[in-house]
C-alpha cells in the first residue's frame, strides 16, 4: 500500500514484518490461555488465584489492544480518550465497592 499517502507508514515490507509480529502475539495468547487454565486447577487460595488470573488476562488484553488493534502506533487523541475511559472504569469499579465495604455498623445493645 505504498501508493496511497494515508498508509505511507505501512509499506509492503512493513506489512510482512507486522504479520510476523501477529503470529508471535497469537502464539503468546494461546500459551497464556493454557497457563491460566492450568493455574486454575492448582486450587490456590481465592485471593492469589484472582490476582494471577486477572494479571494474565490483563497481559493478554494488552497484547490484543497493542498489536491487533495497533494501539501501540496511534497518536495522542486516542490515548487521551482511552485514558479517560480507564479512569472512569476504575471509578465505576471501585467506588461502589468502597461504599459496599463501608456500611454503617449497627451495634446490638445487649
Amino acid at each position: 500500500m505504498s501508493t496511497h499517502s494515508a498508509h505511507s507508514a505501512h509499506s509492503a515490507h512493513d506489512v510482512k514484518n507486522e504479520v510476523r509480529r501477529y503470529v508471535v502475539v497469537f502464539v503468546a495468547l494461546l500459551c497464556l490461555t493454557v497457563i491460566t487454565v492450568a493455574i486454575s486447577y492448582l486450587n490456590l487460595p481465592t485471593l492469589p488465584a484472582i490476582l494471577i488470573a486477572l494479571f494474565v488476562a490483563c497481559v493478554k488484553g494488552s497484547l490484543v489492544a497493542s498489536y491487533f488493534m495497533h494501539l501501540i502506533s496511534e497518536k495522542k487523541a486516542i490515548y487521551m480518550a482511552l485514558l479517560l475511559t480507564v479512569v472512569l472504569f476504575a471509578v465505576l469499579m471501585s467506588l461502589p465497592l468502597f461504599a459496599h465495604s463501608d456500611p454503617i455498623v449497627l451495634r446490638h445493645v445487649p
Binding site: L84, L88, V91, L95, F98, A99, D102, P103, I104, V105
Partner: peptide, 23 residues
C-alpha cells in the same frame, strides 16, 4: 470529569459509612 465521582450524594440514606460519605 468531576460529575462522574459525586453520584453517591444521592444515596446518603442507603447506609453508607462515614468514610465513603465524606468522600
Amino acid at each position: 470529569f468531576m460529575s462522574f465521582v459525586v453520584w453517591a450524594h444521592h444515596m446518603f440514606l442507603t447506609g453508607m459509612g462515614t468514610a465513603i460519605s465524606s468522600f
